[in-house]
Amino acid sequence: MTAPDQDERRRPSLFLERQSYRRRRLMDAARLLPLLGAAMIALPLLWPDESGGAGAVPMSAAIVYIFACWGILILISLLFGFAARRLSAREKDEPEAGKWQR
């Protein structure tokens, strides 16, 4: 098992190890999150309102929607916070691993 492993390390790989690959994707997710939030917040602008005649969205539904989106954003952000903390803690534990992934 060790021999191919060392081989991998010797050759500068085009691809990252699984661990840091996850971390990069997590950062991508963190960057996409506000875009998702903005999209969710902008969505009600497409709803029909009073001027559109019949079928305006009732306020209670709007409240539920807005606060649900808000809650989802908070939840994802919370999960990301935990994930970021775990990953950064692991990174501190294995400083050597970080060097290989550069």
């Binding site: 963190a30 960057r31 999150l33 939030g37 917040i41 709007a62 954003l73 908070i74 952000s77 990301f80």
Partner: peptide
């Protein structure tokens, strides 16, 4: 103006949620 007040809190929410950026 109904739910318009909520924009004042949604903006900071987006900023905080995108703190990584």
């Amino acid at each position: 103006s109904g739910l318009e007040f909520v924009t004042i809190y949604l903006g900071p929410t987006l900023v905080m949620v995108g703190w990584w950026w």
